[in-house]
Every structure is written in structure tokens, then in C-alpha cells.
Nucleic acid binder design. Sequence first.
DNA 1: CTGTTAGCGCGTTCAA
DNA 2: TTGAACGCGCTAACAG
Lengths: 345, 345
Amino acid sequence: MADSSRRNPSKPRISMKEIARRAGVAPMTVSRALADPDKVSPDTRARVLAVIEREGFIRNQIASAMSSTPSRRRMLGTMVPPLINSGIAEQVQGMSDACHEAGYQLLLIQGAFDPEAEEKAIRALLGWQPAGLILQAFVTSDSARHLLAAGEVAVVEISEIRGHEPIDMAVGVSNFDTAYAMTRHLIGKGYRRIGFASTPVHGNDRLQQRRIGYRQALVDHGHVYPGGLEIEVPITAQGGAAALVALSARDPELDVLFCSSDTLAIGAVQECHRRGWKIPGRMAIAGYGDMDLAAELYPRLTTLRIPRYQMGRRAVEQMLRRLKGEPELPRIVPMEFEIVERESA
Amino acid sequence: MADSSRRNPSKPRISMKEIARRAGVAPMTVSRALADPDKVSPDTRARVLAVIEREGFIRNQIASAMSSTPSRRRMLGTMVPPLINSGIAEQVQGMSDACHEAGYQLLLIQGAFDPEAEEKAIRALLGWQPAGLILQAFVTSDSARHLLAAGEVAVVEISEIRGHEPIDMAVGVSNFDTAYAMTRHLIGKGYRRIGFASTPVHGNDRLQQRRIGYRQALVDHGHVYPGGLEIEVPITAQGGAAALVALSARDPELDVLFCSSDTLAIGAVQECHRRGWKIPGRMAIAGYGDMDLAAELYPRLTTLRIPRYQMGRRAVEQMLRRLKGEPELPRIVPMEFEIVERESA
DNA sequence: CTGTTAGCGCGTTCAA
DNA sequence: TTGAACGCGCTAACAG
């Protein structure tokens, strides 16, 4: 069993006061040597830092946060969607890297599907007095938006940026533009019957925008399919397979399926294998998201890349610039995206 | 531009003292109503909680943490590997869920490949005075292990549990057992020439254990391949394809490839498609990890499932039990695993 | 069951 | 450039 007696959780670590004593200065000088090195003479600073190094001093961030002014606190809170997928993980990684480079820490909380739990999550985050909040889940509950709109804390949303009024600031892509671009690309490649498979769009503005982008591109290029070639399926590869089955039954001339996520696209590709359909000879498939696997499939998947890692970084950078009080800061930061053309379409 | 003037980060939120005043009690009573409800009479409690609810009070966790005894602090620190993959994301999700159910928050930091940065990351975590640490990256640096072994804080490692002396506590599987089980399974299915593809094992005890498990199972069942059927490749699907190419050239009678990760296995499957090899007729493939996609590929992948979500939860539960001072707590918690037999092998 | 006192370890503010 | 006093908001410890 765990020999907890050997461990000594109550032993206090060495404090700033003690460092000060050993360096022969006042605690305040140690604090300054760490926070505003310029305000301390070079040799005092050197002496203090030497002691800190030697003793392995770790500053108590809790005490620090308690006495600091809000914008100097070195913690950012983040809420991520209740289902972590690899795309979100990349974003978190970008945020994490940017945070740590700047000496910030990331307090992570998972959002929830229901508004009440979501508000609870935001309150939990706020309890830790973060310098700012980065939200990656769509904030649905009115009271949550209200809470944040009160302006106690800076907020960056990573979200759809078209037709979305940010609570404070927003970083993201226009999903309309992305889907429009991909659809136009497929039209340009000569496909005549372009299907669109998505997971349920209700309550998801990103998917709504993608579908509208798809439709608009068709209209703008004179493609009209009586009855439509759209379908909603569950967010699994099996859903993608089902979409292919259903749409190609609805229209035997379907020659390409544009999927609103790579997961669906992968399922559609597998379904083609099962049927012995050549890709892209008999059927072409386009995805969305550029998961790692998209490049490894056979055939390799044509898809749309959103720079998720960079988006995470950018969100943190935006926050830090705000905290530094930078003027003329844009509220909305659009990110670039890219169509990745491979073999599948 | 961001209208930061409208936002008011300095407006202090309502405090416990103020709640106390409005409820007609002492601040301490409010504190108790929140932390130890039993120590307050039912109607005082009701009155206090009503005011809290009405005013939307959010307790300042920073102040709370500063004055609480360490084991009562409601934050756990966690270090995750520098590359977040979906498996890790699942673990984080399990940890996150377990934390939030218990009213804890998760402070997330990414580890690093070099020991110095790793130690720095741990120090950063410790600075926030977490009640405990959950480490998902293998802690390599001696000084980091030293820092933690000093016992200031409870530690749960999510790691290999065979031949690994935990810093404090550990949760995980025996990678030896998992690979042994899969190899034996393949032998039982009648395969004669079993290849083993892994990413470089050097410095990775989990992979080392898997390879040893594979070898031991062969030996125990009288399988001997002069020259061996092992190969190390990069951790990409392309690596898996390369492994298949190389090993089947080395031994044309190779009839199954056991890959140390699903990513490799997926690459190997795609390579078979390219060659027109039937799976599992001409070649069988087994993976490790049971990624989401394993069940969606064609053919569906036979693989080994490690309950990552549960592992994350279990790690947090272990920590909380320790913090509650539970006696007779085992130091090492082995997790179950499962061979998932599908079509590919 | 409730209240009072003291102090957690820093950073802010002001004085030297 | 450095230091001293004070307080952040809460909880431990003790008293009533």
C-alpha cells in the first residue's frame, strides 16, 4: 500500500522571504528581481537570482495571483468542447505552447452540452481569477454570455467568425468561405453531381455556414439539383458510409461526395472499397479538417486544412496583446485556410 | 478594434464578506456553508446559500487555496506528453470528468522531450500549489524525479507498471502482458510467421515491454524465426507501410504483421490495398490501441484496447482517495485491457 | 453551532 | 535603487 507516512505534504517550500534573508535583501527586492528585473541593480539581481537558483526556489503563484492586479496574473482559463477530438487537441497544443512560452499556465475545463452545466463550468473557471478566458465551445447559455459580457475578464472565442458577434474577441475561420471554396474547387475539377454530407447542423453554426457555403457555390456556378443532394448523418465513419449509400441511391450519377468532416469522408472511402468502386474514377470524395490520417489513406484524401495549432496560438497571442493593453487591437482575427488537393477528388 | 474601455477588468466581484453581511452571519459561516455544510445549522445554511445563489457569488479559489491546508486545495496539476494524440486526449477527458465531478480543476501543462524543459514544466506546475500531480509523460530527468520524490505533493503516474518503481503511485497496464496476449492470440489463430513493427523503442519502456512480450510469447509457443521478424519504423502510417514492405521482402511467407500502434497498422493496411493483397487472406494485420478509426477501416482492424478514458478517471480517483487519507491504498493500479477481434487478423 | 483572531506569501504603494 | 507597511479574500484554530 501507499506509504503515505513517508511523504510529507505539509513541509512548506522555501519562501521568498527566506530567499531575501539569504541574499541579504528585502523580500520586495526578490519579488522585483523576478517580475521587473530592470528595476533592480544588476548586481543585486545577480545575487538574488543566484540564491534562487541554488535553493531551487519556486514562486508561489497562488500568493502572487492574490496580490497582483488582474492583468498580471499568469493563468488563462480555457473551456473546450465536451468531446475532445484530435482537432481540438491540436488547438489546445497551440494554446499550451503559446502560454508556456510567455510564462502563463492553462487551466482546462470541459464544456457541456447543456447550458446550465456550461455556465457552471465558466463560473468554475472564473473562480480561479484567470487573466483571461479562451472559449472553444460555443457558448449557448444566455446567462453565461451575460456573465462574460459584464466584462470582468477578457475573452477570446475560437469560433465561426461570420455573422457572429463576439462576446469580446474572436479567432477563427469563416466556415461559409471554406465550404464555398471547396465546392468551387470541385466544380472546377469538372464534377457534375456534388453531394454534401454533414453531421446534424441544428444548433451548430459552423456546420450551418458550411452548408450555406456549399449551396451558394452551386448557385453561383449554375448547378441545380432538383430534390437536393444533401444529407445529415451521425458523426462517425459509419455515418459517412451511410451518406454515400443513401445519396448514390438517390442520384446514381453522383460523382463526388463532399463531407463536412474527414471522419465522414474516411467512412465514405471505406464504403467505396467495399463496393469495389474506384476513387476517384467511379466516385470522388472530399473531406474537411485534414486529420493526420487523411494523408495516409488509400487513396489519399483531398480535404480542407484549418490551421488548428496556429489558431490556438493566435488566440493566446491575441489575449496577451490585450492584457498588455495594446491599442488598435482588432476584435476579430480571421485565419487562413487551405484546400489540400490529393488523390481522392 | 477591441473596445477595451467598455470592459472593466478591475471591478471586483462580490466577496464572501459581503455575502456574510447580507445573510447576517460571519464570513466564517459562509465559508463553512460552502466547505463543510454539516457544520452549519440547516436554516443558517439555507439562508446563506440563498444569498449566494441570488448574488451569483463565485468563491475566489485563489484566496481559498492560499489559506487552505494543501490536501484541501481543489486543483490538480497534470503533465501530458509533448505530442497530444487521440489516446492522450481520451485520458485527459477521463481526468477532466473525474475532476469536475469532484469539484476539482485541472491545470494542464505539456511535457517536453528534453529533461531540462521537463523539470521546468514540473516546477511551473508546483508553483500553483496543486493538491496533487498526475503525470502522463514518462519522467526522465533525475532532478525532476528527485523534486517529486521529496514528497511535497502526491503523484500519480499513468505509465507502464511492469518493472517501474513509481515515484508515488501509478496507474496503467503491463505492456508486456498486452503484447504477449496479442501474440498468443495470433498464434492461436494459426498464423505461422508473425512480424512485429514498432516505432523506435530506445528510451521508451512501454515499447520495450511490448517487444519483450512479443518475443516471450513466440518462445513460449515454439516459434523461432532465424534472423527475426522485427523492425523499427517512424511513427506514421507511412512507417507502417514501410514495415510491411521490408518484412515481407525479408520473409515472403510472412502471414501477419503485429504493429505496436494502430497508426502503423493503418499504414500497413493501406499498403496491402495498394498491392491488391487480400486482408486477411494474403496478409493479416493487427494493431494496438484501438483508435476510433480502427473500427471504421476496411477491413476493420483487429487490435488491442486500453481503456484510456477509464485510466484517466482512475488516476484522478486514486489521487482523491489519497487526499482523503484513505488507508490501505495500493500504490499500483493495474488496468484491464482487451483484445478486440475484428476482420483484419 | 457560531464568531473572532490571525495569518497564508506575495505585490502594491509609498517613503526613503 | 531599495525597503516597510499594508492588504488581497479566504480558512485554520480556537474560544464562546
